[in-house]
Design a protein around this nucleic acid. Sequence first.
DNA 1: TAACGATACGGAACCTTGTTCCGCTTAGCA
DNA 2: TGCTAAGCGGAACAAGGTTCCGTATCGTTA
Lengths: 190, 190
Amino acid sequence: MGEHKPKRADARRNEKALLDAAAAVFVASGVDAPVRDIAAKAGVGVGTIYRHFPTRADLVIAVFRHQVDACTEAGPALLAANDSPYAALAQWIDLFVDFLVTKHGLAGALQSDNAGFESLHAYFLDRLVPVCAELLDAAAAAGEIQAEVAPLDLMRGVGNLCIGADDPRYDARRMVKVLVAGLRCGTMDA
Amino acid sequence: MGEHKPKRADARRNEKALLDAAAAVFVASGVDAPVRDIAAKAGVGVGTIYRHFPTRADLVIAVFRHQVDACTEAGPALLAANDSPYAALAQWIDLFVDFLVTKHGLAGALQSDNAGFESLHAYFLDRLVPVCAELLDAAAAAGEIQAEVAPLDLMRGVGNLCIGADDPRYDARRMVKVLVAGLRCGTMDA
DNA sequence: TAACGATACGGAACCTTGTTCCGCTTAGCA
DNA sequence: TGCTAAGCGGAACAAGGTTCCGTATCGTTA
């Protein structure tokens, strides 16, 4: 059930290149970007994509799993690199938003593959909730935040604020910043 | 600003044929059915479709407006044709469900054209809520229903019951029937 | 009624996308 | 160094939307 490394070195290299290229292209052109564009960006032929990822949807899923993993690992790293746990939390939320903004095209891109989307979402929650909890606890322990918020609530809240983030009239990131700032000063007025 | 009839008789005939054919094909094969299939069903060439509806999305929107109109007109007609207003309501809900089941593919089919979807939804509410109200009032006046339910609530309720109606394990129509039956006997127990 | 111009029609051709296929290349090993 | 199977590139195919244009038809006018 563990990670079974593919055989050849160049194959492994290409797989990573593809994941990186796809992530970049998705950010630049959206999740609907043509497979050919991704192949070009990675400097490989389309055939190579299809050997690693049987279908377009599989590639998309793989990229997002990859992002979830990165986000997971970033939590402890940020905590170690910052004196202030609150700062770490804020930076982590920032990464999380990067991820969400692109993630919102997902449901559409995976229209047929509903099962794939569900399992991805489950994976997403399984891995990210504990990280968020850790950051939240650390900030609370350091006395840097007043409001008591459950990790899942915070993640949902941020997620919901990011809905419609592609509308240029709506600055989702701004609203998230406000929400995160709100953690510092309890829910009482004045 | 009113309805401006197209010029030629055959053009008008074809437009109607297209609307009917598209509705039939959408029911049979879903909203993603190829334009060619619709043209074939209507017995016209694809070019004809594109003269009447500049884009695939426009055709889809036109079909659904057409359905909304049909549903709107069916309300008073059913009321007139039935002795029991409740029976009329039940039959109307049936038509409404037909419409909803296919409507749920819409958001996906119009992915790019979000504005089109929004305005369609507004049109949908504007026209259907009054009809639903009329049926509900008539049934209440005849003493055939006990529960007091707002038209919009009923429509949303039915709409929500129809979510996931394409899943063969879930019989949405059955649940709607139960809900409608529930109108007859108030919300108290026994 | 015959002729004529505008209007509408059909469907082949085109473009973009996902996916498959297969001859060539190259990593890894003896 | 040579062998072989894993990998690779990209042309070719399939499917869908959209465009184009020669032909047919409508509706009017002489």
